[in-house]
Simulated scan of single mutants.
Amino acid sequence: MWLAVGAAVLTTALTAVSFWLSFEALHDLATDHRLQGERAWAWPATVDAFIAIGEVLILRASLMHRVDWWAIVLTAAGSLGSIALNVAGVGVSDDPLDYVVAAVPPVAALLAFGVLMRQVHEFLSARQSFLTAPPVPSGASVTPPVEREEPEVLEEPQEAMQAPADEPVMTPDEESVSEPEEPGEPLTQRDQMDLIVRGLYDSLGQQRPGTRHMRQALADADLPHSDGTCREARKRVETAEPHLRNLPEAIAA
């Protein structure tokens, strides 16, 4: 952690010093060619700023996993232009080291800013990987699965499944749901809903109807068909006939 922070601080300092030396040399060149004051200090930005802009765009393209050729061209143009102008500012010299000294600041500015952008890229990539990583379940592989004892009610649906398809098994509880106590008395809205929901178990081939099935059937009968109403009707039917709870779930079409 501290090594990464120290490297980032030193890289930032090197970038700042390199750009300052390059700016200073270009400022002197601008002063020698009729620019004074603020204009002489602003002119180097028209050259060295392309290095910073290009490398920031390269960083952006790298994070997006693509290549930005315009960013590469801007960086190359700014770097080559800064090096050439820094060397040209030396003029005619018999000492080759004069040209080396003039070329070092723009080259260092290019490399130092590139290293800085690389560190920023690694930091952002690590942060993005951390934020998008799926949560790790804690203790999921340590706790052995608990075997549940199946209730004795499971014996009833087996007998019902063995019965012929055209002769549904009727229980006393089912008769109380499917038929009113008095044949001459009209069914209440609740009884009508229970009858429609109970009929879905048979029409779906001995499967538990889902909310979508019940809602559609009740809507076709002009009865209340909200999700809560459908679930309450199914609960009443399965309370009267507990074996219906163990039937497989019907898949909504």
Rank of each mutant, 00 (worst) to 15 (best):
V47Q: 06
A49K: 03
A49P: 01
A49M: 10
F50N: 11
I51D: 03
A52W: 05
A52K: 07
I53F: 14
I53L: 15
G54S: 05
E55Y: 09
E55C: 01
E55L: 13
E55K: 09
V56D: 10
V56S: 13
I58H: 04
L59N: 00
R60S: 13
R60I: 12
R60D: 08
R60T: 12
A61H: 00
S62F: 07
L63F: 03
M64E: 13
M64C: 07
H65C: 10
V67M: 06
D68R: 00
D68Y: 02
D68F: 03
W69C: 00
A71Y: 03
I72D: 03
I72Y: 11
I72R: 13
T75V: 08
A76Q: 07
A77V: 12
A77W: 11
S79P: 04
L80F: 12
S82Q: 04
I83R: 03
A84G: 09
L85Q: 08
L85N: 02
V87H: 04
A88K: 05
A88T: 10
V90K: 00
V92K: 11
V92E: 13
S93C: 02
S93Q: 05
P96K: 07
P96W: 08
Y99P: 02
V101K: 12
A102V: 07
A102N: 02
P106E: 02
P106Y: 04
V107Q: 01
V107I: 13
A108L: 14
A108H: 01
A109E: 05
L110F: 15
F113I: 11
L116Q: 14
R118F: 10
V120S: 11
H121F: 14
H121Y: 13
E122K: 11
L124H: 06
S125C: 08
S125V: 10
A126K: 09
Q128R: 15
Q128M: 13
L131T: 08
T132K: 10
A133F: 02
P134D: 09
P135V: 02
P135E: 07
P135Y: 01
V136K: 00
G139V: 00
V142N: 00
P144M: 05
P144G: 04
P145A: 11
P145K: 07
P145M: 08
V146A: 12
V146K: 07
E147A: 14
R148E: 14
R148L: 15
E150P: 06
E152W: 15
V153S: 15
L154V: 15
L154G: 06
E155Y: 09
E156Y: 13
Q158Y: 08
M161R: 15
A163Q: 07
E167H: 08
P168T: 04
T171W: 08
T171L: 07
P172E: 10
E174M: 15
E175R: 12
S176V: 13
V177E: 06
E179P: 00
E179L: 14
E179H: 14
E182W: 06
G184I: 11
G184K: 09
P186A: 08
L187S: 12
L187Y: 06
L187F: 11
